[in-house]
């Protein structure tokens, strides 16, 4: 028993020294300013609810290489902007049996959608927690008489990206108390659940080991305020839920589906771990 305790403490201190050293050596000491005029907070003191878990929160952008970081600094170099432009076009294109476009009800996207991304996911009037995709599909089916878009379809990616751009540089503002609290609690429980045959939780990688490497992957805090992101590996847009799906699958677990209630709850909790950071409005990741 004594052996076990002392070994564990030894290993724990060793791991601690390693991770702090790695952090200083490996995390970029850099500031994100998009197009030279929109500063984005990528490093901030952690929200009160993270006390004892994290002192500071960091955007995933800080953990990427110089080249990848540079792509996000300038819209001409950011491949996600092509998707955002297509979303902007769809914004004012009429669709469905009512012959209406988003713009007919919400006006210009830059006014109607300002700050919306920063507050997602949020509880709707019926008391259900909804992600941005749900609000978009609600408008399409109930107000436009158009078909719902698939969670990870191209038009959905285009629209969520276009809307995210309108919250650039605005702080994450998700509500986690009141009617949101039960969803938040469930998401928190998921975050610390050790899934799959590898028995790893989100915290195993993104709280205990950010700054460290799993093989060639430089672990970040797994924050979502940069989403949707353009992934160079897939040459396409990746939604928040799709990223969650991949991470749970990588624990050798039976994963959940994008658009499931479980992922909505997890999205709210993970979003709240980013309180203090700004929305990036289309990140670039390897």
């Amino acid at each position: 028993m004594t052996l076990r305790t002392s070994r564990t403490i030894l290993a724990a201190t060793a791991a601690f020294a390693l991770s702090t050293a790695a952090l200083h050596a490996e995390m970029a000491d850099d500031e994100l300013v998009i197009n030279g005029d929109t500063p984005i907070t990528v490093k901030a003191p952690a929200a009160d609810h993270l006390e004892g878990h994290l002192d500071e929160v960091y955007s995933g952008w800080l953990f990427r290489t110089d080249e990848t970081r540079a792509m996000e600094q300038d819209d001409f170099d950011n491949p996600i902007m092509i998707f955002a432009e297509q979303g902007q076009e769809t914004w004012s294109t009429a669709d469905g049996s009512e012959g209406k476009s988003c713009a007919d009800c919400h006006g210009d996207i830059s006014e109607g959608m300002k700050g919306v991304r920063a507050s997602m996911p949020k509880v709707n009037e019926a008391g259900k927690l909804w992600s941005m995709e749900d609000y978009i599909n609600d408008c399409r089916t109930n107000r436009m008489g158009a078909e719902a878009w698939g969670w990870d379809s191209t038009p959905m990616h285009n629209m969520t990206t276009a809307i995210a751009v309108e919250s650039r540089g605005m702080p994450v503002s998700v509500k986690i108390d009141g009617d949101a609290q039960p969803f938040w609690e469930k998401g928190k429980e998921m975050y610390y659940t050790r899934y799959g045959q590898l028995e790893l939780s989100c915290a195993s990688c993104h709280e205990e080991n950010y700054g460290n490497y799993i093989r060639a992957d430089h672990l970040s805090q797994g924050q979502i305020q940069g989403f949707p992101v353009y992934r160079l590996k897939n040459a396409g847009v990746v939604s928040i839920h799709n990223r969650f799906k991949g991470c749970i699958r990588d624990t050798r677990a039976e994963t959940y589906s994008p658009g499931s209630d479980e992922f909505r709850n997890l999205e709210l909790y993970v979003a709240s771990r980013g309180l203090g950071l700004d929305i990036e409005g289309g990140g670039v990741r390897p």
């Binding site: 045959q197 050798r252 677990a253 039976e254």
Partner: peptide
């Protein structure tokens, strides 16, 4: 966080390898 290499359960939502 080190995974058990010779264990067959119990696990939470065990998967079939990396298929999800």
């Amino acid at each position: 966080v080190m995974p058990a290499m010779y264990k067959t359960g119990p696990f939470i939502r065990p998967g079939d390898g990396y298929t999800g």
